[in-house]
Design a protein around this nucleic acid. Structure first.
Lengths: 265, 265
DNA sequence: CACAAACCGAACCTAACTGAACAAAATCCT
DNA sequence: AGGATTTTGTTCAGTTAGGTTCGGTTTGTG
């Protein structure tokens, strides 16, 4: 087996379940632990996974990095999946929705598998790929045009223009930061512009943001807190954030991680 | 056994299982390891496989299987490469060009590697990927929006609209058929519509079509023969086709397959 | 708190892989 | 036929992947 193939398997496994263990991979691949670690080093060097004690996880956002909690990223993925599942309940069959680029919306896209007659507009090639993976009857996937950023978002005039001519029922936005005052923000100016266009073309704005996003501020404001009809977050969202959000946004939904609800802190 | 045959076998094997290793091929083909490596060099130079330590893998780790997107044979590939190289000479640095979806234009995109300050518009995600692979200073790649067809073309109103607002110096069209009367055609209606929009937004139309396309007629006409400023084809194009084309199109360019195809840049 | 188990990286070593250069064989061309 | 060209095989020195050992760290458990 070529090193490349092994790394591809590891990456696939990591993407599928959010995390991999060195010991499991040693079993599964029939190589030594050091080889597995070296493979993880390669993948980590390319920014595809993040090494943690005992294995590696898919890359999450490290904007608010609290030291001392190793398994945080694993939970993060749990949270994202919980948020995605909860948000998917808001989607009605037959509606037209928009998805911004990002890891949270990417997870959300996978949660849409069971919903029929959906028209989905997205500016992320990867999200379009996910939606194509499990074809549904009556599903249409529209990719906006534009120039592709390193973070896999299509942006620029072409993207904005193609979005402006569409009218959606709901748009699901993954954001990099949310805070009282700046509102929902992203660190990338052009991506912010595209997200703004996406938001403006929808009647209803749903923001997907796990608790780590609270307090973070990116340079570009996408929308005010008051613009969001719904914000879906997870149970680790602190009380002050809940209070502020409840006050400003239409509805605040807290998604519980199903399996072990108490495991948090 | 001819080198060509060997390479075809290697390519087939690689496509079948995703990867090949040098040591296996030495066994299977009964040649030395160096010969296998040289074959892999050739295939890698054409972008058909990627050399890795111990062997080679098929290109592209994310979307390996795309229906309708397979290079027919190694020979056909020679012609396509000759056409692509010849057509690339028509491209001036600093210009804005368009590329339709298809295997011929995909090969053409690879031939653009050395040209600086290019703005490229395409409705094929795979072509956009190719252009991103070898980043050039001053290069911009714009993806049109739209719905993705099985043959990897973005089509539909969104695609057409985003194209209409752009103005290009030249557009390079890969077609499925060309014939006197029907002109340049494609078997897919919506793809034809998109190609038509692409053509209309450019001042100059260049059609890339190997000799097998002559006499084939698809349901949807993209353009008349007279609309083409240039047609680039290969040396196997029959005489009657050459006569007819020369009569109608602005210029007919015949790309010769170099006698030593491997050495080529 | 102490201990055991798992985990980690560094260092080392072997086997496999690699490209370059050269030699031999096959093929082509006049 | 005979020289030129291309293709393939062989040798060789340098590189890389992968296994093992070892000392140190982290984590979990009594």
């Amino acid at each position: 087996m070529l090193a490349r193939q092994r790394q591809a398997i590891i990456l696939e496994e990591a993407r599928r379940s959010g995390a991999v263990r060195v010991s499991d991979l040693v079993q599964r691949l029939g190589v030594s632990d050091m080889t597995v670690r070296r493979d993880l080093d390669v993948l980590a060097g390319r920014g595809l996974v993040e090494k943690v004690y005992g294995g590696a996880t898919t890359i999450g956002d490290r904007s608010t990095d609290e030291p001392g909690f190793e398994a945080k990223s694993v939970q993060q993925q749990d949270h994202k999946e919980a948020i995605a599942a909860r948000a998917a309940e808001l989607v009605h069959p037959g509606s037209a929705i928009g998805l911004s680029a990002g890891t949270t919306t990417w997870t959300f896209a996978r949660a849409l598998a069971g919903i029929a007659d959906l028209t989905v507009v997205t500016n992320s090639v990867r999200i379009a790929d996910v939606l194509h993976e499990s074809p549904q009857p009556g599903r249409t996937v529209i990719l906006t045009g534009g120039v592709r950023t390193p973070s896999d978002a299509l942006v620029g005039p072409v993207a904005v223009q193609s979005i402006r001519n569409l009218h959606l029922d709901m748009v699901f936005l993954g954001v990099h930061g949310m805070a009282d005052g700046p509102g929902f923000t992203t660190p990338n100016l052009t991506e912010g512009e595209t997200d703004r266009a996406l938001m403006e073309s929808a009647r209803k704005l749903v923001v997907l943001a796990d608790h780590t996003k609270w307090g973070t501020v990116g340079i570009s404001t996408i929308a005010d807190l008051a613009d969001a009809s719904v914000v879906v977050s997870d149970a680790d969202l602190p009380d002050d954030a809940r209070a502020t959000l409840s006050e400003h946004v239409g509805e605040l939904i807290i998604a519980d991680v199903p399996s072990n609800p108490e495991a948090g802190e």
